[in-house]
Computed example of a mutant assay.
Amino acid sequence: MKKILIIMHNYAEIPTLIRKNLDDLGYENVDFIFYAEEKFRYKNMAQKVKNLYRKTILKDKSYKDQLRKEFIKRTLLEKAERLPHYDVILMLNTDFFSDEFIRIIKTKTKKLVGNHWDGLSRTPAIYSKIKFFDAFYVFDKSDVDEKNKIYFLTNFFFNFNESQKEEIIKQDVFYLGTYVEERFNVLKNISKVFTLKNISQKIILFTWDKREAEGEITFTNQFLSYEENMSHVKSSKALLDLKLKEHNGLSFRFFEALKYHKKLITDNAYVKDYDFYKKENIFIIGEDSEEELKSFVESPYQEIPAEIKNKYSFENWFKTLIS
């Protein structure tokens, strides 16, 4: 079995879920490196004293952030130098890692593979890093450039074994997202439509700022666990998805809906280009008639053939990256 290293940012429980799915599939020879894994330490007493002076006398809190970034970069470079050789190194969240780090990593493997879960234009620093990779995968078809080894690969659903307990349906539509100003007016408008049509909804937005609820939209500054999020997904008839203007890739919600047999309401019309698209299951805002929204939510989900559905599993995603 191949010896594999995964390098990524440690956030939103994703590494834990990846480990769980790899264990479930029988992958035993996979190591991880995480961005900002070690607790910050001052390099010497002079740094500590200088930070205290700048913070208390100059009211400058940015110096410690600068030191923290330097510490992360230094510890990552030290780790990279000590690494053994791997058959494949897979790097996610590539924009977090320095060119110097990636250059060293490339010497530690036969094949260096990148995967980006966002539009390239949202993280322009990534463009200069793609040249280091033997293959680089993106989820937006418009970012594909096979001449420069940039290939298309969608997001996925986790397919590890889990409880088959049936959830009681508590609401018609569920949406969990991060507060993004450009999407907020769209979200408020669709929420009003749900209310007018007696479509029950649970909408939660994450933001660091303390905000009061607006209509049916509630705010939180606490991260929901994966289990909490999936519990809301399972107890809903449909999921809501709103795209960002910078890319046309399909978010993880499309694949959560596919896994759990849920309807989807979205403003991303590019979903019609995918083989799992069925008009009975996916309502496109701005194209499909609002008059049909209530009946869309209440009508039965149309099953997708297993051979299509399984193409979007974690298992298939991972095999594609390491092949």
Rank of each mutant, 00 (worst) to 15 (best):
Gly215Asn: 10
Asn221Met: 05
Asp209Asn: 15
Ser299Trp: 09
Asn281Leu: 04
Glu303Trp: 00
Asp209Glu: 13
Ile284Asp: 08
Phe276Trp: 05
Asp267Ile: 02
Ala257His: 00
Asp273Thr: 15
Phe254Gln: 00
Asn221Gly: 05
Ala269Lys: 12
Lys237Ala: 12
Met230Leu: 15
Glu227Lys: 15
Ile285Cys: 10
Ser251Arg: 06
Ser225Phe: 13
Leu293Pro: 04
Ser299Pro: 06
Gln302Asp: 06
His261Gln: 06
Lys262Pro: 09
Asn248Ala: 08
Leu264Asn: 01
Glu298Ala: 13
Asn281Ile: 07
Asp267Ser: 02
Trp208Ala: 13
Ser289Thr: 01
Asn268His: 09
Glu216Val: 01
Glu290Ala: 06
Ile265Phe: 10
Thr207Met: 12
Ser236Thr: 07
Phe223Glu: 08
Ser225Gln: 07
Val297Tyr: 03
Ser251Thr: 03
Tyr274Thr: 03
Glu280Phe: 03
His232Gly: 02
Lys278His: 08
Glu292Ile: 10
Lys294Glu: 10
Pro300Met: 03
Ile217Phe: 14
Ala269Leu: 13
Tyr270Gln: 05
Leu258Gln: 07
Asn229Gln: 09
Ser236Ile: 02
Leu242Pro: 10
Phe219Arg: 01
Ile284Glu: 07
Tyr274His: 10
Glu256Met: 03
Glu303Arg: 00
Glu280Val: 04
Glu290Ile: 05
Leu224Ser: 04
Glu291Arg: 14
Ile284Leu: 13
Ser236Lys: 07
Val297Thr: 02
Lys278Ser: 03
Thr207Phe: 12
Thr266Asn: 11
Lys263Ala: 01
Pro305Leu: 02
Met230Gly: 11
Ile204Asp: 00
Glu212Cys: 13
Lys279Asp: 02
Ser251Asp: 01
Tyr301Thr: 00
Phe223Asp: 02
Phe283Trp: 10
Asp241Glu: 12
Asn281Tyr: 01
Asp273Val: 08
Thr207Ile: 09
Thr266Tyr: 10
Glu256Asn: 07
Asn248Val: 03
Tyr274Phe: 07
Leu240Glu: 04
Ser225Arg: 04
Leu250Trp: 00
Asn248Met: 09
Asp241Thr: 03
Ser295Thr: 15
Glu256Val: 01
Tyr226Ile: 11
Leu242Phe: 11
Lys243Tyr: 04
Ile217Ser: 14
Leu239Ala: 11
Lys278Phe: 06
